[in-house]
């Protein structure tokens, strides 16, 4: 029987639990901080430049769009800054200034404001921007070529690209521990796995991010990578490698979990996450793109409204 107590609603005034857009945005930025700081330390001034330019230009675009559309100015809620920060974490530290500005234009104007602003966007704005830039300027998104000016004391090859072109033999040196500690080439904010995991756990514990999505995304990657690895271990790398390279951890904790583009019910969340993980691995192993997280999550974003139809039947409603 239905527990009647669950449906009891007392009358106003209600107690506000204190959650608001601003706190969500700033806590998410706080959670991203370890990975961002690591990127700054690793890549130096260019990374600082990319991050500050992305955040500030994202806020300026938001302000401009608010003015044009004659709406309340919403840069105070921190969402534009958050999108700018996440976008900056996904691009190489060597990105030229115009690419960053076009990226935030796409993210804020095309992918967020035109769809009606916060809560109305069908895709994660930063993902749309990164996908568009990846398709347009492949050379600038080639992490190997982009970081040619740096000297590191570990293998100077983007792990996923090396895997794609030379098979698993080329990536044997990347141990999961080294990858977790960020000893790999990548975008500004993605190499430091431990920092991303810490940030993600913080968000989950604080309740800003649902563990179902993150976990099922990682599980989808793990299981699919495992199957491929068993089938042909010379061509396909093992699950641990895939979990800690490329955009995987970033996707699990910061991209897949974006509020308005991810499902809200339990089973849809599991399907959404797992689907993203499986698609990512299919693109990485079979597709022509080096990293599939961006495209996989965009596809799952489109499927999101359909997935959300899978929900408990409303009591007494007849279909």
């Amino acid at each position: 029987m239905v527990d009647q107590k669950k449906f009891t609603v007392s009358h106003a005034p209600f107690w506000h639990d204190g959650s608001c857009i601003r706190s969500r945005s700033y806590h998410t930025m706080l959670a991203a901080l370890p990975a961002v700081l690591f990127g700054v330390v690793r890549y130096g001034m260019p990374a600082v430049g990319v991050i500050s330019l992305a955040v500030s230009s994202a806020m300026i675009w938001e302000y401009v769009m608010n003015r044009i559309m004659r709406r309340d100015i919403t840069i105070g809620d921190g969402n534009a800054a958050l999108i700018g920060l996440i976008f900056a974490m996904l691009v190489p530290a060597s990105s030229p200034w115009w690419m960053v500005i076009i990226g935030t234009f796409v993210a804020i104007v095309v992918a967020k404001q035109i769809y009606g602003g916060i809560g109305g966007n069908p895709f994660h704005p930063a993902l749309v921007a990164v996908a568009m830039l990846m398709l347009s300027w492949k050379d600038l998104f080639d992490f190997d070529a982009a970081l040619v000016n740096y000297e590191f004391d570990f293998a100077m090859a983007y792990p996923l690209a090396a895997l794609k072109h030379f098979g698993t033999a080329a990536v044997e040196n990347f141990t999961p521990g080294a990858l977790l500690m960020g000893n790999q080439i990548g975008a500004v904010g993605t190499p430091f796995g431990l920092g991303l995991i810490a940030g993600g756990l913080y968000l989950i514990v604080r309740g800003f991010v649902r563990w179902e999505i993150s976990l099922s995304f990682l599980a989808g990657i793990f299981v699919t990578a495992f199957i491929f690895h068993q089938a042909d271990s010379a061509r396909y790398a093992g699950p641990a490698f895939h979990l800690f390279t490329g955009y995987t951890l970033m996707g699990a904790f910061f991209l897949a979990t974006e509020d308005s583009s991810s499902p809200v019910h339990f089973i849809p969340m599991l399907i959404y996450g797992a689907g993203g993980g499986i698609l990512t691995m299919l693109i990485r192993n079979i597709g022509i793109h080096v990293d599939g997280v961006v495209f996989a999550l965009l596809v799952m974003n489109i499927a999101n409204p359909l997935l959300d139809k899978i929900r408990p039947k409303a009591l007494g409603k007849v279909f």
């Binding site: 044009i68 076009i102 095309v110 398709l135 347009s136 600038l140």
Partner: peptide, 26 residues
């Protein structure tokens, strides 16, 4: 100049048309 090759791909056409329509309406 590094061409913004997204614009000559199919999705670029939709984005471009949408932006132009929006400007026309404005």
């Amino acid at each position: 100049f590094q061409p913004f090759s997204f614009m000559v791909e199919a999705p670029g056409a939709f984005v471009c048309l949408g932006l132009m329509l929006c400007l026309m309406n404005l």
